[in-house]
Design a binder for these strands. Structure first.
Lengths: 344, 344
DNA sequence: CTGAAAGCGCTTACAG
DNA sequence: CTGAAAGCGCTTACAG
């Protein structure tokens, strides 16, 4: 690999001038520019990104940390990553996928991240990632609110989880469903904390108490059960619950699918016997199930894009004022998986 | 951010010693190690990854270049990325998502990649990415064969595209389907080249000629039509084709969904009127459609994992002999979307 | 507009 | 086992 000295020598200029031709930070005369470009081409020279980063303190990469076990992304992750990558590329940034936990790495990865900033998806109540980022002075944006005031005023992009759960409960209750079962996200994540509180509150408005059978947490990501979440819960509750559950709220597409399978295996039908409402939907998928699912579109792609924009503002790539907290709209998309109960 | 000099001074040792404590490349005495660690903790010191990379010539990151327009990953990409990330983390490597085309970046990204190696998904016949990687002496692995001998003997992980198309055609023909319609991948990709040739060959075995209506290419990724691929083609061919098509082979889940919608919009049923066979399936999704789709499981996650392993071998993280070409098995998973024709 | 020199924060022979 | 010094390939004041 040719380096800047080689080009400088061949073009008969100084290293600084070659640097300027590539970085465009200072003007260079036409003649010199051409000589440098010609020499570079001849030597197949491209500037060394690492060396540049060392002095500019910019890597032009952002980290995307997603909780990660031995599992597959859901449709939500999929669209979220799409939104992030696409928006980041608009600012010349690349995206480093940073999964946790990193499995059995010999040398614990103690080095500072080679990134300019990070996006943290799904912060938990005591989030080690956030502690580290904060300690290292790394700019970051969380997708999902940070609770417990670990870091005050951290920039955040979020759905309005509380409003969402209220909307869903109101929607179901208006259609005659009082015995709901909520397949919530993993315990300890801020999103599940907010949702549970909202669930209790929303039902309390209608004088409905939340029994144990009505609320479930997703297993931790490292768990064997993670991918099957929703199946066993649905089987158990529909079989054993005394007051009959008539509607299920699923946390994501996978939980919804598992619930669908459980309902089918019990010989029940959707929505005649059990209604199903899914959060985090992938619209293209909703139309292919039978019946098409009714759900809440969280706009994951937009969440991703807006979190990049917010981070770009923190990094100085977007100038001027900018909100520190961004709420992404979400709306109910009606399919045919929720029954309007007649005996209401 | 504390740097190595600060720690060395506080611990009363040289920079080299601090370096050794963290890199473990040379032994350090217990006493000294403890002093250094204590000082590091006190100063919140973590080694600067960039500075280390500059001298070691290792970034501990691999690039994943995926053709990318303004679109969403399919289930195939989703699982592929999962396989890559998970396997890479086993070797202490991070993954840099490198999408093409990068949109309107001001300074064309002319710098050398801050990665140790790359995985190129879906090489095209004249692939600019491969030309660049090769020119820069960057180790890389392609997923999908390189045609045209741009680079001789490039390490490759692949499905056996030719065998796959033969298997699919044999499967459909054995069930009485002779008028097939193949929704192939994008023109110019090696996978679509191989598949088309195999399609013609497989049908020729049974003395069936391939008419225009029977073979289609996916629009380029930048195209507006990309996401809708399969809908218009299905409508048109089912309406206008003289000899009636009875089975459709879809390139991926999205194309299959679009074809399903088209079939439904024409008032036809699967599989009674039209059979559907999907390549690149996501098993969890296949079971939720009605009818469940019959398809060819390409094991995208395994493709991803094996391409990482092959790359790790090139980078010296895996020692010993290693094959330069790896074929990932694929198998037909039967749902209920292909009809056994009686009048055969 | 251009050059010479210092410096980014590490690692690595070399010497002891 | 430890230290002093050179060097990785760039950028950036500073001077002209």
């Amino acid at each position: 690999m040719a380096k800047i000295d080689d080009v400088a020598r061949l073009a008969g200029v100084s290293k600084g001038t070659v640097s300027n031709v590539f970085s465009q930070k200072r003007p260079t005369s036409k003649k010199v520019t051409e000589r440098v470009l010609k020499a570079s081409k001849e030597l197949n020279y491209v500037p060394n990104h690492i060396a540049r980063s060392l002095v500019t303190k910019k890597t032009m990469a952002i980290g995307l940390t997603i909780p990660h076990g031995n599992f597959f992304f859901s449709a939500f992750h999929n669209q979220f990553i799409n939104g992030v990558v696409l928006e980041a590329s608009r600012y010349g940034y690349r995206v480093l996928l940073d999964m946790l936990p990193v499995l059995e790495v010999k040398t614990p990865s103690l080095t500072s991240y080679p990134i300019d900033g990070a996006i943290v998806l799904g912060p938990t109540e005591e989030d080690e990632r956030i502690r580290l980022l904060h300690m290292n002075g790394m700019p970051f944006v969380t997708v999902g609110k940070i609770l417990n005031g670990q870091v005050k005023e951290a920039p955040t992009v979020n759905n309005d989880n509380i409003q969402i759960v209220h909307d869903i409960c109101d929607y179901l209750i208006a259609r005659g469903h009082v015995n709901l079962m909520f397949l919530n996200a993993t315990e300890g994540m801020t999103v599940s904390v907010e949702r549970k509180a909202a669930f209790i509150e929303a039902l309390a408005k209608h004088r409905i108490a939340v029994r144990d059978a009505m609320h479930h947490y997703k297993p931790r990501i490292q768990s064997e059960q993670y991918l099957r979440y929703g199946y066993a819960e649905t089987i158990r509750v529909l079989r054993e619950s005394e007051e009959k559950v008539t509607a299920i709220i699923a946390d994501d597409d996978r939980a919804a699918f598992n619930a669908m399978n459980a309902i089918q295996d019990l010989g029940l039908r959707i929505p005649e016997d059990i209604s199903l409402f899914v959060i985090c939907v992938d619209l293209s998928m909703m139309h292919q199930t039978v019946p098409p699912l009714t759900g809440m579109d969280l706009q994951p792609s937009e969440l991703g894009a807006q979190s990049v924009k917010l981070l770009m503002h923190k990094l100085g790539s977007i100038e001027g004022d900018y909100p520190n907290h961004i709420i992404i709209a979400s709306k109910i998309v009606e399919g045919a998986s929720v029954l309007q109960r007649l005996n209401h």
